[in-house]
Design a protein around this nucleic acid. Sequence first.
RNA 1: GCGCGGGUGGUGGAAUUGGUAGACACGAGGGACUUAAAAUCCCUUGCCCAUUAAACGGCGUGCGAGUUCGAUUCUCGCUCCGCGCACCA
Length: 819
Amino acid sequence: MKRYNPSEIEPKWQKIWQNDGRYVADDADTDKDKFYISPMFPYPSGAGMHVGHAFEHAIVDATARFQRAHGKNVLNPMGWDAFGLPAENYAIKTGTPPQVATQQNIANFKQQLARMGSSIDWSREINTTDPEYYKWTQWIFTKLFERGLAYQKESAQWWCPVDKTVLANEQVEGGKCWRCDSVVVKKSMKQWFFKITEYADELLEGLDEIDWPEHIKTAQRNWIGKSMGATIQFDVNEHDEFITVFSTRPDTIFGATFLVLAPEHPLVDSIATKDRRDVVKDYVLAATRKSEIERMSEAKEKTGVFTGAYAHNPATGEPMEVWVADYVLWGYGTGAIMAVPAHDERDYEFATAFDLPIKSVIEKPDDNPSSNYVYSGEGILVNSGAFDGESSSDARENIVAWLEENDRGTQTTTYKMRDWLVSRQRYWGAPIPIIHCASHGAVAVPEADLPVVLPQVDDYAPKGEGGSVLADEKTWVSTTCPTCGEPALRETDTMDGYACSSWYLLRYTDPNNTEQAFSSERVNAWAPVDMYIGGDHAVAHLLYVRFWTRALNDMGLVDFKEPVSRLVYHGYVNANDGTKMSKSKGNVVDPLEIIDQGYGADALKTYLLFMGPVDDDSAWDSNGVAGVYRFLNRVWTLTQEFHNAIKLDELPTDSELRRLTHKTIKRVTLDIHRLSFNTAIAALMELTNDLYKLKTDGFSEEWRDTLKIVSQLLQPVAPHISAEMWQQLHNGDIGETDAITMLDFTQWPTWEESLIQDEEMTIIVQVNGKLRAKLRTPVATPADVILQMAREDVAVAKHLTGEIKKEIYIPGKLVNIVC
RNA sequence: GCGCGGGUGGUGGAAUUGGUAGACACGAGGGACUUAAAAUCCCUUGCCCAUUAAACGGCGUGCGAGUUCGAUUCUCGCUCCGCGCACCA
């Protein structure tokens, strides 16, 4: 009897999969429905794949194989998000050019993936650092530039002093750099931006149309942060100036008792009275010198100073002190607020700290249990002149209308989202395709001159003063203006790596096109992605890719607005103790190690999918791999026993065998369909356990069908053992290639509902909702007979203490007797 | 603080629209096979009570209430954990 030996069979099938191009997606095949699936392409780090990658690929591969077996034309591509800091920092340390290290890392990843037995279409491999790829990233940049969606602006931005580059808001996590965890600072520089804010509303509305996890949608909604409200003008007394504030609660304007400006607000300087000028200056200086992180951590302590200036409330006509305080942020709204201490927690805190007037204008509803002094909810207006008695929502409209009539304000919408800062002062990225000309300003590099190839340099270390090392490449930098031909200089900043990953899903559909980024025909045929799988980037990448797609749609290059129809967001694979795997703790599990221990790729993938639901975090348990290996071994042994046994024509247990088989087809099919791999695998384990009981009666020919179906059902998660079994079950009459072609593309087994039905049913009998007995009766037993049986059952009768008040019968399932 | 998830045995986790709680697996215990071990196969395994033998016993899905014949599932309140955002006006 042949033993189950993954280290023997797995390389054999992997070789065939790799060599015969069977997983190359057919662009011309329009008979089949397409199914486009992709993982979030990885950064090819020097550390190689870890089990988290393996988990992701197990999900992708199982789904791809499942869909392929359902007759879909499957596109399952792979690529490398290869620009980025680790390779560059490695270059600074060792002198190895990032180009070289990246190639090595990719080769390593590919080797690892091959050993996982993935059904990837390698003919579409993408590498963002390949000039043939970033040529088109640059081309899209120039298109965005033409439309005003890429622009340059001098402004204060997040700067990482360690990585010596600016960062996008999305790359600052809790005031720290997402890459190196150092505290970031604000620095004023001229930078390139993508105008994502122009798409704020569209990006918000588009969320309603896509099948993405709710928490991701919520994260994006919060990030975009749309608020409806009003901008209101307050005249400053004795000045020809007014202060514009933004408020979501114009209904509380009668309760606005003072104004607060952000320290960066330009009016602070001009309106401060002589006697207050020094105090104000000191405060502003101190506030702006404080890092954002300090301002955040000191959040609870309100500080501020009076400017000496007064404004007045347009609604009440009453005077209002104008203060400066750092709890008002310059970056949001207008950088100034009307303070309504009675109905806003922060304003209340500030008012009590500095003894400013508090005036209640919204009546707290009687049923509101909050005992706070501040009531920030909605209610009925009081102390609000003509608006008394109106509800907050009515008053909001009416007060804004009144402000508009009197030129004192307008309805306004604001967003928290800022434009996407894309320039980076680092080497290892796609050069921004812009030429700066003395007479024409920033000019896009014409398509014919693309790509702007990243030059080889000697020293990769960033200089730190606002430019990348490319600035030192004098011959590269000096060029001529595409418009006038005069000497001009190249832009030396590179693009954020997120730019490169914002359109790769589109490039996969036409990856070798040298004339275009992609042909419309191809991209519209394959995209949008039917299933996109990842476990990272809730906002950044997943927002950017939506933004670019919408911009490309507006350019007429793609005819869809959302790039990803369905997003599957998987959990993390944690270490045994539930904590994150990390190099420093030495608890990182290497997938190859598991394979090499003899468990094989099939057991590894099956285990990863068996651990729990795909969207849950899970804890790695090496005993679990052993358990799944044991299961595969049992399936294997069963096949061998069948193969060697003398088959009987027929067995009395055949109908039971058929019933179990069809029941399992149904369960596995529906489970994989809803990505519930863990229960699908459990169903196959149950069937296997049942088969071990049935086999004591011997094997009939009927078993061949069952075992073939088992290998088909197992194929998505454990493709190697399935292929081997499949071939064997054809008595070796077919070759390897035919065997897997059959397995890959043969129609997925279907179940017959009639075969699943048992002749008997189990009726649960409850008394007062408590289980007291189970009845086995023929399926057709009428209700009154069942009720009779239920009442007469010994275990039930014992609990029927009083008069029967009610009897509930759910046909075929349950009886509940109430007494 | 706000938003989003979640709390089920020793562990990971099952449980279509409310209808047998704990599938499947790990771990643990016992047995078979073996000179022995590994591997394999079989049995037991939520807790408590009872036990010479015997379940037709009680409790049980974070806590407390509610709706219902019936709640892990629905409603309300509380609590704890995880994640995201965070002085966003």
